[in-house]
Design a protein around this nucleic acid. Sequence first.
DNA 1: GTCTATAATGAGATAGAC
DNA 2: GTCTATCTCATTATAGAC
Lengths: 213, 213
Amino acid sequence: MNTARKRAPSARSLETKARILDAAELVFAERGFEGAALRDIAKLAAVPVGLVHHHGNSKEDLFCQTVRRRAAEMADIRIKSLEALKETGDLSLYAILECFIRAYIILAETGGDHWRAYGRLVAHVSSDPRWEKLTKECFDPTASRYLDEILKLYPNAKRPAAAAGQVYSVSAMLAHLNSGWRIDALGNGHTETELERLVTFCTAGFEAILSQE
Amino acid sequence: MNTARKRAPSARSLETKARILDAAELVFAERGFEGAALRDIAKLAAVPVGLVHHHGNSKEDLFCQTVRRRAAEMADIRIKSLEALKETGDLSLYAILECFIRAYIILAETGGDHWRAYGRLVAHVSSDPRWEKLTKECFDPTASRYLDEILKLYPNAKRPAAAAGQVYSVSAMLAHLNSGWRIDALGNGHTETELERLVTFCTAGFEAILSQE
DNA sequence: GTCTATAATGAGATAGAC
DNA sequence: GTCTATCTCATTATAGAC
């Protein structure tokens, strides 16, 4: 008889928890942490509110779990993409940034509602100092790996400069995803979401920063 | 006897209202629309909650008033800066973007808490489709004026492309202001907030987009 | 693990005295 | 215009039956 400290959760339990996290993801993304109501999450997941507490522990913890779950998946994809890129031997700045950005944009555009929601979620998290620890935990490892790769291409560049380029690039990517309506408004409609344009912007900006010093 | 439809507000009333808007600005900026409590605004302004309702009309209206007030001031500064730049004759892309960005960054860094708060406020507003109308009203006129000027430099560029560059640039500016802690973390601390670096990034990115087509 | 009922708090809004 | 008291509602969290 196995006497582990905690019983392994049943398949049913895991499935319920996943449904709750799925719902939480959508609601948190749309309304932010404060604006989201556990009741709405429960309704969307079709479970009683009590269950949201049971699996989520607390509102804050549920939020963190939600972010962590998908961030882990995202990090995995990004690291694997980078490895694959390294094997092709084409380690230009453009290729590295495209690798980083494409991994996400493609999922946001074709991966369904949950990945699109994740874009808004990340925007909430990474713009609020309140989630600094969560941000560090979820995003920094991957970001650092890419940063290292980029710095290899520009041995004279300083890391703070590259870090700035990285943050600016990510913010442009998030704007691309979340503020498409703004681009449409200013440009008189008719934006055919161009990934290439975004990567071009980031690469040129990044390059200018790195070779400036 | 003057029988205007509404009595002119007393000096005392105006001063109270200004205090409420000042407080609202800080609280909304820090916690977002949903997270902000009218009670906290009242406490910070040192007035009873009832007064916040009286002057604010409703939470949503108060939020809009808060944004509008400072956005109007900002727009005024930006337009005047652009006029001044035109008189110097140096209408390079770099100069135009620097003009747009500097007007804000300088205020955020030296204009006190309220202008720093405004940065976060704008980030909230322009990333949430919920405030689309407010965004259009407050930011589009100024953004369009700058966009027109930029398009004069690149007669072959299309407006949607330039609009994308504009939105990416603004997002980078907001990241510079609001996510400085991220840059510090990734770059191993020690960021000496460089305005020049930001403008360099935006200009190079913008230029690449515009001359790509 | 699942679910119901309820507690405890805090919110925005309003009516009416001064 | 200013302020107090109060209403109504929605929220998170918890206790305890199944």
